[in-house]
Amino acid sequence: MQSFEWVDAESVEHAVSLLGEGSERQPVVAKAGGMDLLDLMKNGVMAPRRVVNIKTIKGLDGVRFDAKQGLELGALVTLARLSREPEVRKRFVALADAAEHAATPQVRNAATMGGNLLQRPRCWYFRYDHFHQAGGDAVERVRSGENQYHAIFDNQRTVMVHASTPATALVAYGASVELTGPGGKTRVVPVSEFLLPPDMKRSTDTSIAPNELLTRVRIPAPAAGTKAAYHKQGERESYDWPICDVAVVLRMEGRTIRQAAIAMGWVAPTPRRAAEAEKLLVGKTLNEELARQVAKAAVNGATPLSKNAYKVPVLEAVVRRTVLAAAAA
């Protein structure tokens, strides 16, 4: 890892102004937990000239719930805290579970909400500096190479999947991110639009500008009768990146489903809503047979690559189980 300059940011404004001084040749990056940043720097994928430590900014680690405003998470809230926070556990169980099943206990103690959303893809071609220097089309290499963990949907332009698993839950809950730019100007972007298909040639897989800081994540207050579930499927029970993960949020009246959101992570470049499957649920009472139909609809239109067709039945099973788990929650 190349050494760099280090500045402790005193405020959001200070951090934003420091980030604004960066250029392609003299990159300046923000660091919170540093988990993904260190990985990228150690692999030679990133070599910032200056690192802005945003852990020193006060007031960015709050968790606030309000019945009207919903949930507000500071960008510096750690995944460990997110998984334990009573308001999150009680009202946004899919998010708490997603945070609890991300990475290792050690990493969750350091990794932050903001950094988790901004992390780069885990694609092993992406993580190898050679493919950044080669100039060739890495996507085509993956397409004909080791693509067992890559996208099975929307994989014409890119085959990489976004790494964040809490993002899957955030998309199902209709969450947004707050970005703060120069002059303290903020904009709020839905997570579903914020995340962009991963691209090796860009320096981010989100719509954040180089002189913006992700400051907060907001989730609307859940309507009465909201039930949710999350499941991350890996190759083993202990720490691993997922084959796929699914978050389901249902609004129910008695046993009737009034609204449904099914978000599927690690199967498309960004978390994918199963729109057709969701429609099948509305106005119905869930049973095994309906769950089976819904899961089938969720994987409809998949275009697996040479080595990842196995992900289709795995995803189908995980959707079926997670829909049933949400309704029974």
Partner: peptide
């Protein structure tokens, strides 16, 4: 502002 530390 707080000092710039490093790269040394």
């Amino acid at each position: 502002s707080p000092p710039v530390l490093g790269p040394e």
